[in-house]
Design a protein around this nucleic acid. Structure first.
Lengths: 168, 168
DNA sequence: ACTAACTTTCAAAAAATTTTGAAATTTCGG
DNA sequence: CCGAAATTTCAAAATTTTTTGAAAGTTAGT
C-alpha cells in the first residue's frame, strides 16, 4: 500500500472510530492528520487536505487545543499560525482520560452521592432496588476514578512493564 | 429527595451520560429504568414510563438484549414478554467492555497491522512519521486489549481488592 | 494609524441520527 | 387453523448535530 492511501485510510478510520466515542468526525480527522504529519500545518493546509470549511477547521482545532492534544506553533518570521499534535501516544491517552474523567465521571459520582440519600423505607422494594443500584454504580465509579488517577500519574514504561506482570 | 424525583434524575442523567459514549439517549434511559425496577417490565410499561413510541422502545430493548444487558423474562401464564436488566454492575461493566473491545478495538488493531506495512523509504520523513504513529498506537492498543481480556475474566473482588494494592 | 493578512464567530443550511406510528408479521390459546 | 394479542419493521417526520461561509474581529508590519 502507498503512503497516500494508507494516510487516507488512517484519517478516515480514526474519524469513524472517534464517532463511537462521542468525538465528532472532523475533530478526530484533524487529529489524525496532524498525528501523521512530520511538520506543523496551517489551517489552510488542513482545510485543503480534508476538504472542509474554514469555520469547521478553526472550531475543531480550537477544541483539540482545549483537550491539550494539539498546540499552536509560531514559526519565526511567519505571520501564520501552525498546528502540531502531541505525538507521544501515552501522553495523548493520559490527556484524554484526564479530560473525560473530569467532564463525565466526576459529575456522575457527585450526582450519585446525592441520589443515594433518597428518602423512603428500605423495606419498600422500589426504594431498596434504587439505592442498591446507585450504590453499586458508585462503588465501581469510585474505583475507576482512583485507578485512572494513578494511571494519569504513571509512566508509560511502568504501565507497559509492570502492569503485565501483575496481571500475570 | 423523593424516590420518584430521584428515579427521574437517575434516568435522565444516565441518558445524557450515554450520549457521551456513543449510546443513544433512549437506549441508556431504558437501561436505567430497568436497573432501578425491582420487577421485570413490559414494553408497555417502558413506553408509558419514558413516554416514547412503541417502535422506539422495541428497537432499543432489542439492542440492549444484543449487548447482553437486558433479558427477556417469560412469566408463567402470561402472554406478554417482560424485560429485566442485569443488576450486578460488575457484570454489566464487563459485558460493555467485552462488546466494545470486539466492535471497536479489535477492528482498529487489524487495520493498524495493515497500515504499518506501508511501502516507502523510512528516510522519508512522511513515511517515518506515519509508521511511528501507527506503531505507537498499535503498541498501546495491544496493551489495552490484553489488559481488558484479563479484566473480563476477573472477579469483582479481585478487581476491587488486589488492583488497589498493586496500584499502591 | 493604516491596511492587508489572518483568525474567529455564528446564523443559516446540510447532514446525520433518532423517533414515530401505522402496517405487516408472528405467536399462542382455544 | 383461527383470531386476538403481541411483536417487529420501516418509510417518513422530527430532532439533533455538524458544517458552511460570509461578516466581524484581531494582529502585526510598515
Amino acid at each position: 500500500m502507498k503512503l497516500t492511501e494508507a494516510r487516507q485510510q488512517f484519517i478516515s478510520s480514526w474519524g469513524a472510530f472517534g464517532t463511537h466515542w462521542g468525538i465528532n468526525r472532523t475533530m478526530a480527522q484533524i487529529h489524525a492528520l496532524l498525528l501523521v504529519s512530520p511538520e506543523a500545518l496551517t489551517q489552510d493546509d488542513i482545510m485543503e487536505e480534508l476538504d472542509i470549511s474554514r469555520g469547521n477547521t478553526n472550531m475543531n482545532i480550537r477544541e483539540l487545543i482545549n483537550w491539550g492534544l494539539v498546540e499552536r506553533v509560531l514559526l519565526p518570521g511567519e505571520r501564520k499560525e501552525y498546528f502540531s499534535a502531541e505525538k507521544n501516544m501515552w501522553k495523548v491517552v493520559k490527556k484524554i482520560v484526564k479530560e473525560r474523567k473530569k467532564r463525565e465521571l466526576e459529575p456522575m459520582l457527585q450526582l450519585l452521592d446525592k441520589l443515594e440519600e433518597v428518602e423512603g423505607d428500605k423495606r419498600d422494594k422500589n426504594v431498596k432496588t434504587f439505592i442498591d443500584t446507585v450504590s453499586s454504580i458508585k462503588k465501581l465509579g469510585r474505583q475507576a476514578d482512583k485507578t485512572l488517577d494513578i494511571m494519569i500519574k504513571a509512566e508509560e514504561s511502568w504501565f507497559i512493564g509492570s502492569l503485565m506482570k501483575i496481571f500475570k
